[in-house]
């Protein structure tokens, strides 16, 4: 197994160079597969012996392929410092992800990637950082948090606001616990619908924004979740005075090729697959507020 050195010191949205044959998947082995919540699961993949391992950046995604079933874009939710284990957490919603949910240790999965742009983790050094995640949107943000926390001292206040549908839908409970215990990280979790035993916050994730401490003028925000959530989150952040140039969002569109050949993921002038999925909000603000773009 050869491991290319990760490129260090790049600015915002630095991403490794793409693969030479971007259209053919490479087989990886499932080393762990487990359920996160009722409808989400995590796959941890390791390369076949002798295969090249490509570095990835926080926010990038892979195309995961099950032969004869199909392929889906899934963000990488593992640690960019350990690219030889690819961690993917996703929701079983379509035929492919439902089939993936049934995968077991030792099975093979085709992987194309990594693709797309990255969260501006490095360029945010020196700032307060607010992460806002909704639902499964925590998965694509986890690598950014992991990376940031490994150099926690370089940042100001760091806040994670996380909204889930119900307490049962909360992802990465263990990771959240560890982060709370081990790091100077303020975490607020809220649910849309409380259940009986829930003692935490109730209300949409946007309602957390007014009450958390950060210095709006020196804050970078990274948002990942449903597009509706993104729009309202941005609105709340702007009310608090966070400039649109310091807000970054991860978007979802139909992706087939992941390299800008198939055209499906276009959002105005952008190919979400290669110009995104992480965008500075400024770039997409007008498009997100237009219908059926």
């Amino acid at each position: 197994m050869t491991l290319a050195a990760p490129e260090a010191g790049k600015g915002a949205a630095a991403a490794p160079p793409p693969a030479r044959d971007p259209m053919s998947p490479t087989p990886w082995r499932v080393c762990r597969a487990f359920r996160e919540t009722d409808d989400t699961f995590t796959l941890e993949l390791i390369p076949e012996p002798g295969r090249e391992v490509r570095p990835f950046a926080a926010g990038q995604f892979n195309m995961l392929y099950l032969p004869g079933i199909g392929e889906v874009p899934i963000s990488i939710s593992g640690d960019p410092a350990y690219p030889h284990t690819l961690v993917h957490t996703t929701r079983a919603v379509g035929a492919v992800t439902k089939k993936m949910a049934a995968i077991r240790r030792g099975d093979s999965v085709g992987v194309r990637g990594p693709f797309g742009t990255a969260w501006p983790v490095e360029s945010s050094e020196g700032s307060d950082v607010v992460f806002v995640a909704g639902g499964i949107g925590l998965a694509p943000l986890r690598p950014a948090l992991t990376q940031l926390l490994s150099r926690r001292e370089r940042y100001g206040r760091v806040v994670l606001l996380y909204g889930a549908r119900t307490p049962e839908d909360i992802l990465f409970r263990k990771t959240l616990r560890e982060w709370r215990a081990d790091f100077d990280l303020e975490i607020h979790v809220t649910v849309d619908r409380a259940t009986r035993d829930w003692r935490g916050n109730v209300g949409v994730v946007t309602s957390l924004i007014p009450r958390v401490p950060f210095e709006p003028g020196h804050t970078v925000a990274m948002i990942c979740g449903p597009e509706v959530m993104i729009r309202y989150t941005v609105m709340e952040l702007e009310r608090r005075g966070v400039g649109p140039d310091r807000i970054h969002v991860s978007l979802e569109r139909n992706m087939k090729c992941a390299v800008g050949f198939c055209g499906h993921c276009q959002l105005g002038p952008h190919f979400v697959c290669k110009d995104g999925p992480v965008f500075p909000y400024e770039k997409v603000a007008a498009l997100l507020n237009q219908r059926e773009v």
Partner: peptide, 8 residues
């Protein structure tokens, strides 16, 4: 084929 393999 799709049905046997669980493909959409």
């Amino acid at each position: 084929g799709a049905w046997l393999n669980g493909r959409a």
